[in-house]
């Protein structure tokens, strides 16, 4: 087939370009993923008592994970577009993580010395990050699926962004089941869980995002 014939073929009756490609693929997947993580967390680990929501701890997790999901989703949407700029969403991700770190460091430095180790390690530091990683899988899969319908030209970065997004959604689900209340704990172990998921995404990207 000559190139001119291919052009005729592609243009014929092509109609308008699809709109909002990123949102249309990312939003339903994200909704499904956050539901899946929450249900799995509730079934396997149980929900925290509603009384705990009177304290700031659970809200800090939800705000942190929610903000990180928004920034991560923005980054995924950008990396699915060839030549798109990523500086703004990267700054948003870095900003959210930095804010969580600042909150963690401040509360930690203000707490009385005997509380410092418990505030950092809680009772579940050995499982927290891994739980977030496991619960990140639905979101990671959803984001990778969304990217497969787009045109990521940087597969490692796009995979990492998918992992970051999935990790934040996983953290959102895990927050419903995690009884830790100390902010330094959240700043350290939730972030580590999200970073593990980001690394997993970066490793999967080049394998799954070819086109």
């Amino acid at each position: 087939m000559k190139t001119d014939d291919l052009i005729l073929m592609l243009a014929r009756d092509a109609g308008p370009a699809p709109r909002a490609v990123a949102a249309r693929r990312l939003l339903p997947g994200a909704a499904l993923a956050v539901t899946a993580s929450s249900v799995v967390a509730a079934l396997l680990l149980g929900l925290i008592p509603t009384g705990l929501y009177l304290q700031f701890g659970p809200w800090f997790k939800l705000i942190y994970a929610g903000a990180l999901s928004l920034a991560g989703g923005w980054l995924v949407a950008r990396l699915g577009r060839p030549a798109a700029h990523v500086r703004a969403p990267l700054l948003a991700v870095a900003g959210v993580m930095a804010a969580a770190a600042v909150v963690g460091v401040l509360t930690w430095s203000m707490s009385a010395p005997p509380h410092r180790i418990p505030d950092l390690m809680g009772h579940s530091w050995t499982t927290c990050s891994l739980s977030v990683l496991v619960l990140s899988l639905p979101g990671l899969a959803a984001a990778l699926w969304a990217l497969r319908g787009m045109a990521p030209t940087r597969p490692v970065a796009a995979g990492a962004a998918a992992g970051l997004f999935g990790g934040s959604l996983g953290a959102l689900g895990y927050a419903l089941s995690c009884t830790e209340l100390a902010l330094p704990f959240v700043a350290v172990w939730y972030t580590l869980g999200v970073l593990l998921s980001t690394a997993l995404g970066a490793a999967l990207g080049p394998r799954l995002l070819r086109w």
Binding site: L10, P18, R81, P82
Partner: peptide, 18 residues
């Protein structure tokens, strides 16, 4: 030709700010 085909399939990913 491959690139033209990709441009067509991916035309929804064009970002008007670029």
């Amino acid at each position: 030709q491959d690139t033209l085909l990709a441009l067509h399939l991916q035309r929804g990913t064009y970002d008007p700010s670029l």
